[in-house]
């Protein structure tokens, strides 16, 4: 419990900064919304006249930009990206910083098992991630409420926020995994960054070129894309893949962290 509290305190300031940035992103993005955007012609009709490859390129076939919550769906990709960066960095940092700051010996000399230390750190990281998610949820709810003018949005908003949490959990697990695998802080954050960028580039390629359909099972950015979610194209296998990945990363994190030589 002490470790958990200590970690929460240590990450309070970064959390506030990330939350402020996130709220700014949401506000700045939705500030451009206007219900006039999509009117004048029926987007879905237009889309159907286009060849499939181009529909995918624009990705607008399922998002009606004159509806506030669907407009928000366009922003969601970038919100998820920023939240993923936060989660991956937090996960890698929270485990590897003891070795970087030379506090590992101090911590390990305490009568707490390594598994419990990792559990406390994971719980603290999860709390942080959840807090960022709630800030984002509250901020976007406020903005959507303002722009929707009575149109229903809560269901799709809730779905997007749940998806955001799933993306965060995935990248948090990768960060913790890499930090548990290697004792070198820069290597852990570097590997987590590399994986994140790789998955993002794969997402961009599947998203706009659309010809590499099997790649959609590779990247969580694709699983929890607003276009997929709002079109009802979500496949249950995405949940399975995410849960399996998170479980595997966390399992191996425990395995490595309990056995590894700590760098002191």
């Amino acid at each position: 419990m002490n470790i958990y509290r200590r970690e929460l305190k240590a990450h309070r300031k970064p959390l506030l900064i990330w939350s402020a940035c996130m709220l700014f992103l949401v506000a700045a993005g939705m500030g451009k919304y206007s219900s006039q955007l999509g009117t004048g012609l029926n987007i879905n009709d237009l889309m159907q006249t286009m060849p499939a490859a181009l529909q995918k390129f624009f990705g607008l076939g399922v998002l009606d930009l004159s509806v506030a919550v669907e407009y928000f769906g366009v922003l969601f990709t970038y919100i998820a990206l920023v939240a993923a960066v936060h989660a991956a960095m937090l996960g890698a940092e929270i485990v590897s910083k003891e070795e970087r700051d030379k506090t590992a010996e101090f911590l390990m000399a305490k009568p707490v098992s390594r598994a419990r230390i990792l559990t406390a750190k994971l719980a603290a990281a999860l709390t942080n991630v959840l807090a960022l998610n709630l800030f984002t949820a509250a901020g976007s709810f406020g903005v959507l409420n303002y722009y929707s003018q009575g149109a229903p949005f809560a269901g799709r908003w809730g779905m997007l926020m749940a998806a955001l949490l799933a993306v965060q959990a995935f990248f948090l697990a990768t960060g913790v995994f890499f930090a548990s695998l290697t004792g070198k802080h820069s290597l852990a954050t570097g590997a987590a960054t590399g994986l994140l960028l790789l998955l993002f580039v794969i997402f961009v390629i599947t998203d706009i070129f659309g010809r590499t359909d099997f790649l959609r099972y590779v990247t969580p950015f694709k699983f929890f894309d607003a276009k997929v979610l709002m079109a009802g194209k979500y496949e249950n296998i995405y949940t399975v893949i995410t849960v399996l990945c998170v479980a595997a990363f966390v399992f191996f994190a425990y395995r490595f962290y309990r056995r590894r030589d700590l760098k002191v």
Binding site: V82, V85, M89, E93, K97, S186, T189
Partner: peptide, 9 residues
């Protein structure tokens, strides 16, 4: 203390 969170952010 660590560079990547700042630069990525």
């Amino acid at each position: 203390k660590s560079v990547l969170p700042y630069s990525l952010g």
